[in-house]
Structures are given as structure tokens and as C-alpha cells.
Amino acid sequence: MKNVLLSTRGLKKVYGKRDSKFEALKGIDIDIESGESVAITGKSGSGKSTLMHLLALLDQPSEGTIKLNGKNTSKLKQRKLNRLRNKEFGFVFQSFFMNTNDTVINNVILPLKIAGIRRGERRKRAMAALETVELGDKYKNKANDLSGGQKQRVCIARAIVNNPKVIFADEPTGNLDSATGAKIEELLFNLNREKGITLIIVTHDEELATKCGRQIHIADGKVIGDGKGVAKHDPSFIEDENLDGIRDKNHTKEIDVEEE
């Protein structure tokens, strides 16, 4: 039996008012099952980040519904949403977002501290999470003294320390060289395989996207491809940011709006 974890219907997001109105998402219907590894792809400005923010309950949709475990989240109060994010989600960002002046373990502890868990308990859990990313011996170090790859591993430890159901990763390898990036990818897919954590990765890295079990391709605020292996055959991957000029008409329009 299918176990739908996240489900969206008619999801729209509109920024601005009247003249400067901009529709970032134009009606998204997707279902993500528990334990899936999903890549949300698309070039910058396509709306993929907006979609992730909505799925992660960081933002409210202008229209449409998001159901988490069959429950409509739009009816939940802010306090409950905060709790859900804290308990069920983990976040990994492209530029890490960590307190570089603090120690490694204190960075990992953060979600547990926000949850109000006792000192002894959160330390134990943070150490376990650090062991998972093979940084147990570095717990005392200042976060600033770590390499980029190590930093991202600390962030993964922070993302899994609360035993989440879902990890949202926004370009997790974007700031890393390919060798280090590969290690981070391996780590994330291992978590997906071994612990059954649902993985939602936002990326425009084709290679990373193809490693996921499913690719949802977004363009111009709509899903233009969804399924296993879609990304490989998707023409929009050719026109990455560094390949300007090969844009089709639709995309040009979208860029214009964004620049306003």
C-alpha cells in the first residue's frame, strides 16, 4: 500500500500585488511517498525553491493545499507548524547556515535545544548524529575550522539529530568540489536507504538528480516532468545558468518578470 507523506493539490504561490504581481507556482499537484528520494529540478527562477519552501512548511501557499500524512497543514496554527518542522523535518542548505563561532556539537544540538530537550539527552543524541556523519572526533572543534565538506556533514548531522521523517536539501553539493560532493550525496542516500528518511533534494545538478529515485522537473511554475529518469531526457538541463542564450521563449519571459 502506498504511504503518501506529502501531497499537494492546486498549489499556487503569488508574490507581490497588482502590477508587480508574479506567479511563482501555477498549480502544482504532486504526491511524495514516505521513503522516496525525490529531486526537484529546474533552473533558477523556475519555482523549485518556492515549492520546497512550501513543502517544508516554511511558507504559506496563496492557493491550494498541502497535506502532511493526510492532514491539511493550512489549518494548523503557527505553533503547531513550528513543532512539525522541528520534529519531522531536517534541513540541509547550500551555504551550510551554521554558527561558525560555535563548536561543532553546539551546531548539531540546535534543533534539540529549540525543542527544549534536556542537556544530557541532547548531547547524547548529537554525538550519535555526529558519529553517523563520521565526525564524532571533531565535536569540540569550532565549526569555522572545518573544511566545506565537513561543514556540510555537520549540517547533515544537525538535520538528522531529531530523527526526522523528511530531509529537505537545497543544493547540498552546490558549494563543494565533486569528490566532497559525492561523499555528501552518498551520506544522504544512505540515510534514505537505511533509515527510510524521505529525501527531497532541490538541485540543478543533473548527476545528483538522476541518483534520486524520482525527478520532478519544474519550469515556469509548473511540473513539466515527473517520474523515474525524467531528468535525463529533459532538454532544460542543457541550458544551465552558465549556458545562457539557449533559452526558449517561455523561460525568457519568466526571467524578465523576476528581474522587475
Partner: peptide, 16 residues
């Protein structure tokens, strides 16, 4: 600013 954003993303409430 970014730290506040992270805290909030990780579930810290406005009042906290």
C-alpha cells in the same frame, strides 16, 4: 539575520 532564519526554520517560534 541568517541565524534567526535558521532558528525559525528549525521550529523556533516568533515569541522565542
Amino acid at each position: 539575520t541568517r541565524e534567526i532564519g535558521l532558528d525559525k526554520a528549525l521550529g523556533m517560534s516568533n515569541s522565542k
